[in-house]
């Protein structure tokens, strides 16, 4: 199965307002897809549809070879949301406890032993370099550290596909680059397919293997380096009228 996700002719409205129009694309196994578009371009909506948080109105989505309506997520797909940064800071939970939430889909009446859980949790914390913070309160960590913990929570169940919705919001610029490196590692070393939603087109093109530009409909899908070599005018045509390339010099 080469395609994990197949989106075909999806159109979506909120009341009378059309947010997606005839959107079709595929997500290949092993790829690192950057899903970019200006604010209000429908990025979050398409993600919600793929995650089953929003009901499909028109068109079809297949996840792991099954129509999305029949797909029951048993740990194949994981998610790091934009809102992960805005959880209640006073919540009395340790980093370790937050990561353990990622194991819920494995929980059934026949639970594996606690030791096995502990091992998985520490492995995930180690992967994101947050081992020493295991027993810290989640609210005491910095934005970047919290986001690493949320990545650990998302990968602890060993998913095939990880979707991240604007994960760098609230993370300071210095840590953003490290954050993208961590994502590249997850993609290359663990073979996790990634969809990274961002409005920051400049930085992510250097990390992703596929670039998907969305502005109500798909404006570009392909190799990020081809996209980089286009003139601003060509890009504006593809991307929509209000595109700005943000360049980061490090």
């Amino acid at each position: 199965m080469a395609n994990l996700i197949t989106v075909n002719g999806v159109t979506h409205r909120y009341d009378k307002h059309k947010v997606l129009e005839d959107v079709s694309f595929t997500i290949e196994k092993g790829s690192f897809v950057g899903l970019v578009g200006p604010n209000g371009s429908g990025k979050t909506t398409i993600i919600k549809l793929i995650l089953g948080l929003e009901k499909l109105q028109k068109g079809s989505i297949e996840a792991f070879g099954k129509p999305i309506e029949k797909f029951h997520n048993k740990g194949h797909v994981s998610f790091v949301s934009q809102k992960a940064n805005s959880f209640s800071r006073g919540f009395p939970a340790t980093a370790k406890e937050v990561v353990s939430m990622g194991l819920t889909s494995k929980v059934s009446l026949l639970r594996p032993t606690t030791k096995k859980y502990e091992y998985l949790i520490f492995e995930a914390l180690d992967r994101v370099n947050m081992m020493e913070y295991a027993n810290h309160n989640i609210g005491d960590l910095s934005g970047g550290q919290q986001q690493r913990i949320f990545i650990a929570r998302a990968i602890v169940n060993n998913p095939s596909l990880l979707i991240l919705d604007e994960p760098t919001v609230g993370v300071d610029t210095e840590n953003v680059e490290q954050f993208y490196q961590l994502l590249s590692q997850l993609n290359e070393e663990l073979g996790i397919t990634l969809i990274l939603v961002s409005h920051d087109i400049g930085t992510i093109t250097t990390h992703v293997t596929d670039l998907l530009c969305l502005n109500k409909s798909v404006h570009y899908h392909g190799n990020p380096s081809d996209f980089e070599h286009m003139t601003d005018e060509q890009r504006s045509k593809i991307y929509g009228h209000d595109m700005h390339t943000i360049t980061h010099d490090h």
């Binding site: 797909v77 949301s81 939430m101």
Partner: peptide, 17 residues
């Protein structure tokens, strides 16, 4: 675990099935 996950972050919990 389910109650804990739902209390902390309902969206993530729902996505996890």
């Amino acid at each position: 675990k389910e109650l804990f996950a739902l209390s902390f972050d309902e969206e993530f919990a729902t996505v996890s099935g």
